[in-house]
Design a protein around this nucleic acid. Structure first.
Lengths: 252, 252
DNA sequence: GTTTGATGTCACGACTTTGTCACATCTATC
DNA sequence: GATAGATGTGACAAAGTCGTGACATCAAAC
């Protein structure tokens, strides 16, 4: 049990006396300088079953994202170094981060219209102070709108079907055999299709982070995944992006 | 009585002067903050032969579900922390819980349409106050509709037949001998086919939970079950999913 | 009291998975 | 086309996972 937690991306949430385990958790990055709000938000979204990591300023956020791409960013608009608005624009322009949904946190309601007017590409806005319920609701709504596959039990992309509850991968009704790591890797790819991930980011999201593994190991597992998919010619979906990493894509 | 209830998922129900034993009871989680209603519903559905566990709020419900996945959830729509509607939506999106049928409890009839309009994925609705018989009927109906095998007395999957009342397993009219634990294990598998269960989950559902047993014991009983099934070549339905657990499946 | 059958634990061996490495192949650039 | 850097590929040892038979214990039945 403890071993699993180290090796696999399982989130353990302690609530009172018992532990909850979450497979392949959704990662949320919170960028906020006020420690009090950070703590409150952190608690809230951990309770809701997400994995959170925090940054107090844009510089820290950049470092955090380089290590691990989040599935959603909560971004305060007043930050010590760069304004949240500017940073959101930057994120939406860069290839690596443009797909990540952003929820902006604003201090007062009357700023909301001003910020909205600036249109820096955020997917939703929430004004402080907000209730726990409101935040959870907005996170869920944004994730459902922008990344519907994240919470699906059966993911079917162009005939390649991954079923989590029966732990099976089928291609045009042919069952495909693969190891646990390849299964997790494919799951991550299918829930994050059309996006490029570096080896380090894949190690973080598929292997669970905090693991010191040679990045070239990812290459080998990519190879094994391709081998598992090649009998039904789905290996062409696992694409190499030279100099950057890998991508799962149905195009080309 | 107390020992039986702890070690095995056997429910003892007293009717008049005699005890009735129910194998592998259906687990129902009730989420409701009013203690009076909770008590009444608890009594009602225990009488009907189900096993109930209660939660006063959504936070408690989460803990309860993490320990043991129920077969049905009775969900009040007004709860202290998160509204029942929101929680129902959450449950229906997460892979672990999406297949669990939900019956919503509403305080007054005139709210019913409003709630129904929100369509949070509940399988049925019932308005307070309700009669004992009505609740029992709806539970039965929902279970029959969503998990037909759970309420069956005889389950037949591809020639493998399990008869609960006569406590017998036959394969193509050949009687198969197995121990009580293997029988319960097979029953659980056949009512939850095509899904992978970890050793911990099997211990919880087949052994009755709250028991500190070495997880490897599950392996041994899987072995005994396979041995019992192998004469008629049904052992191939009991499949190992490396790194995850076991699955009962007619495929491959 | 003895027998019988069921059950949980253990030890051993077979098998699978996994990270690393060495070498082959490819690609961009000069 | 020569070069350097990046990626693909097969092999391997170590670690992990699972199957299997044996055994001690316990409770019920005789």
């Amino acid at each position: 049990m403890s071993r699993l937690c180290h090796i696999y991306p399982i989130l353990m949430v302690r609530i009172d006396e018992s532990w909850i385990f979450i497979m392949m958790p959704v990662k949320i990055l919170m960028v906020e300088d006020e420690a009090a709000i950070r703590e409150m938000v952190c608690f809230t979204i951990t309770q809701a079953g997400y994995q959170v990591f925090e940054a107090g300023c844009v510089a820290d956020a950049r470092i955090a994202i380089a290590d691990s791409v989040p599935d959603l960013i909560l971004l305060d608009w007043m930050l010590p170094d760069v304004s949240g608005i500017e940073y959101a624009r930057t994120l939406k322009k860069e290839e690596m981060t443009r797909h990540i949904p952003i929820i902006m946190l604003t201090a007062r309601g009357d700023e909301l219209d001003k910020i909205r007017g600036l249109d820096m590409g955020a997917d939703d806005y929430i004004t402080k102070p907000f209730s726990v319920k409101e935040l959870q609701a907005r996170i869920k709504a944004v994730l459902r709108r922008t990344s519907p596959l994240l919470t699906e039990d059966v993911i079917d992309i162009d005939g390649l079907r991954l079923d989590i509850s029966s732990h099976r991968v089928t291609a045009n009704d042919t069952s495909l055999e693969m190891g646990p790591t390849e299964f997790r890797l494919l799951h991550f790819f299918m829930t994050h299709a059309e996006r490029v991930f570096s080896r380090g980011q894949l190690l973080d999201r598929v292997w669970g982070g905090n693991v010191y593994i040679d990045e070239r190991t990812v290459d080998v597992h990519i190879r094994r995944l391709r081998k598992a998919l090649e009998s039904e010619h789905y290996d062409r979906y696992v694409q190499t992006v030279r100099g950057s990493g890998y991508r799962f894509s149905t195009k080309v």
